[in-house]
Design a protein around this nucleic acid. Sequence first.
RNA 1: GCGCGGAGCGA
DNA 2: ATTACTATGGTCGCTCCGCGC
Length: 801
Amino acid sequence: VIGKRFHSCCVVVKNMQRCIYAIPSSSVFPRDTISRIEKNSTSSDASLSLRATLHELSSGLKSEVAEKLSDLNVSNFVMTPVKRNYAFERTDVPIGEQYVLKINYPYKDPAVPADLRGDHFHALLGTNNSALELFLIKRKIKGPSWLSISKFVACPSTQRVSWCKFEVTVDSPKDISVLMTSNTLEVPPVVVAAVNLKTIINEKHNVHEIVSASVICCHQVKIDTPMRSEDWQKRGTISHFTVMRKLEGSIFPIGLTKEASDRNQKAGSNVLALESSERALLNRLMIELSKLDCDVLVGHNISGFDLDVLLHRAQTCKVPSSMWSKIGRLRRSVMPRLTKGNTLYGSGASPGIMSCIAGRLLCDTYLCSRDLLREVSYSLTQLAETQLKKDRREVSPHDIPPMFQSAGTLLKLVEYGETDAWLSLELMFHLSVLPLTRQLTNISGNLWGKTLQGARAQRVEYLLLHSFHAKKFIIPDKFAARNKELNSAKRKLNADTEGGNAADGAADPSIDDEVHHGDQGKARKGPSYAGGLVLEPKKGLYDKYILLLDFNSLYPSIIQEFNICFTTVERSSDGNLPNLPTSKASGVLPELLKSLVERRRMVKSWLKTASGLKRQQFDIQQQALKLTANSMYGCLGFSNSRFFAKPLAELITLQGREILQNTVDLVQNNLNLEVIYGDTDSIMIYTGLDDISKAKAIAGKVIQEVNKKYRCLEIDLDGVYKRMLLLKKKKYAAIKVALDGSLRENIERKGLDMVRRDWSLLSKEIGDFCLNQILSGGTCDDVVESIHNSLVQVQAQMKKW
RNA sequence: GCGCGGAGCGA
DNA sequence: ATTACTATGGTCGCTCCGCGC
Ligand SMILES: [Mg+2]
Ligand SMILES: [Mg+2]
């Protein structure tokens, strides 16, 4: 901090040590010897002698390892016998607690092959762990937070690796710790720069060339709470500029130069810079960006367009690396391969591009909107209209060259560019992207940048890495040899779903709630195990009260209820469905979920009494905790996940199906109520009553009966429907009555064509009209007539066209 | 009815 | 016109559309 401003600082951590584990043959630490000496070693000097004994026992192992390491040109290593747990999928590592040999040596030395074996050890784990991951896990760094950095030395400017304001070096990762007293420190603001490029198309090479770049910069952005527009738009905390260039072989239109200098003079800074070439434009842009030294780059489809164009043009125009690399915070000398994989639209920036902006976060509001909103289109124009209530003028690259004919139109172009940057920025605030992703990151302990990219699997991966590490587990390697099963099991499963699909041939999932929408692009793989049970709906129009009961967070609750974990469920090597655990000891996953649920409960209790920004902060935190708990199951069933455990995922969904079926049976057979539908974690009960309080009383009874069967699982009344049209599985609409006593009514539409974005507006509007009529409560004749009339009218209107 | 491909809703 | 998982991408269930047989 200088004065009241925060600045960037790069910390170079030297001497990172690899941490690998050799799994000894059973003869190295004989079980009876170990338990005998452990029993005696309760006092401290006895533990000294324990250590001595362990070193003694492992001497053969150690010398063998030492020899093999030396063969591999690894010289500076330390070996220590330690007690660790294992609970994962490798069959060559015993499950449970045991002594293993920990080997530390510098990352500078080469990684040893993962399949290295010896007479005294039969497996090696952690050989390829990344230094960054190890650092975060060992130092227990869970997302952005204050760190204490001790014994650092400032780096002379000639040896810097970064463009940061400060750069220091520490000699050991242990010089860095999470600052425990950080609650007393203010959360620093971040600098956010919104970028928008305007390009023309070079027909010959079929590439975009940049003619203008606009940047809007917010210097005081909060990351702990959402910000209202009046706060982030406060004068003095925001700045902007546009860099523009003339078209090749032509000059700027008359009056532009004068206008630019007037504007700059008036603003007291370069708000409009005119350059003579694309290369000069890029140079200027990089200089201005490096002055801003922003923490976050934001833009609409910035990862799919602007950054890509920017770097490709820098390459083509031979912008020196000392310039283009300022787009990030690391100094770089060679341009990485910009396109590698990821040519799919909407899948984020390529790794090469991401590496260029190292040190800055990337917030693509196109990708964020796809994740957080449901819209028929995610264009900036559409989002500006529906989300921000603003008009946006669309400018295609083909419209641009003519705009160079007059100063007036060219200034319009500047305005459009700056407006687009502004709208994207506004969208970012509107969606609270930074507070939400920061919170998610602090819960899981991964990298913030990855959360911004989506990377749900990695979030869960880090959450589990931290948890298992804290309990002294050896963590599964990233590229475990998972060559066994693969596709063989999946075929079989699809083939032998016994019974038709009447009431039991269904599957299961993970109970997503509101969020997570836009899903274009990625072709889904076929399912590899059964998911949630979907009851056959009793189709029809219901006009008396219907109860919607729904289990809260079904899968997280199942994991806790049945203590499902890597550490508790015995899995056979053939990948068959395991039995429920009998173990009393709580597993790691259940404990983890319990703590997430408890934290959420606490935050929600604060939320009740808080107000204003504090309240919004708690709300975000609460959402993030729920999201995290709910996404864990998905990763157990994710074949590329480091913690892939299909048997566990399968066991969870099986419990889900049984619980739903048992609930249906109880409600129908014991309570004599009519269940008309249910999906995965919910049941709908037709009460046949006109009296809402009687209906609610029934709900209370059902809830009581169901909940007393379980320890963690909890069913709750999710809604009361006054009338409902039930068409098919996952397709229905209903008038939902508010439960807060206000009796407000609202039509809920699920799965119907009118909620899908692949139907025309006209079709959706007509559908909605029909639905309103059908649910209006009018007589059948009236409804039919009204719909018929309306359709005739539409037909007439269409004929006029 | 089967197969393939494509949509994106639902939990 | 075609398409190879050195990195990486959360799960499954249920319509709809369109082609070919
Ligand atoms: Mg639920
Ligand atoms: Mg539900």
